[in-house]
Design a protein around this nucleic acid. Sequence first.
DNA 1: TCTATTTAGTGGCATATGCCACTTCCGCGA
DNA 2: TCGCGGAAGTGGCATATGCCACTAAATAGA
Lengths: 150, 150
Amino acid sequence: MKPGFSRCNNATLRRAARSLGRFYDDALAPAGLKGTQFGLLFQIHVGSEPTMGDIAEALIMDLSALGHTLKPLIRDGYVETFADKDDRRVKRVRLTPRGEVKLSEAIKLWSIAQQRFEDKVGAEQAAKLRAALDAVADLDLEMPTAAPSN
Amino acid sequence: MKPGFSRCNNATLRRAARSLGRFYDDALAPAGLKGTQFGLLFQIHVGSEPTMGDIAEALIMDLSALGHTLKPLIRDGYVETFADKDDRRVKRVRLTPRGEVKLSEAIKLWSIAQQRFEDKVGAEQAAKLRAALDAVADLDLEMPTAAPSN
DNA sequence: TCTATTTAGTGGCATATGCCACTTCCGCGA
DNA sequence: TCGCGGAAGTGGCATATGCCACTAAATAGA
């Protein structure tokens, strides 16, 4: 088997994610953001003051992981949280003005990387790949429970 | 735009990786291994006492990241390292007998998850997806340097 | 042969992610 | 209205990954 060409879907996916992640990270570096942070800011931006749970669900991310990832962004003043008016358990999230500016700046850098990628693989192919990845992400793979019929 | 369906190739890839990663992690949990650890043990297993650099290259992983990731596996006695005979800078890696046993155990669990995945998306489609991901991983995306012609 | 350069890893620091235990709230039922 | 079970987050702990600065060792040159 050629090096790096595993039959494991998970290993292959992670390998590609590491590779592509570095590329986008490099592209965003001038803005001082990582690819994940950019994605998170964007997700908050397009949402309507989403709750932590909303974001975690959209990104298929563990709620606590989201909390951790949000911390540096809050610390740097790009994001702020506030309690929901009706349910005090719920915490909503939004970008600060500073965060909006940073996001705009980052989008310019992201566009370059995104364009570069699409030039290499083709916009069609890229769209197909994203569709396939979204399909995989949304698969219900839960292992059938021992006794699902009781 | 529907939630979670980003145009960003990197964000989409990471999202799918989180999703699939959890599935494989769950499947491997009985063996006490994470998906990444399984992949790493396997890579070491199929190699011929690979060097740190060999592994890092095959997995498109930062050399220092590999070192970090290897630590728990060494601590748990699944992997051991030794200096190369001819080049004292080089560190080679291999599984311990205990590591071989653990890998066998993990492969059984992995097969179930892998099979489940392939049942859901189809073996053909899975193979195509892996091929696409390998292609993406191996793309040369380096941003053209300002002055590549000097 | 001696030195400048390159190569292979390490250690420290920071972010990315998850799981689990725990706290706080909300809502429902007795 | 009291109290219990479920929902939403937090904090702690552990692994996953990267970058950077630094050390040690091999190598190309002068």
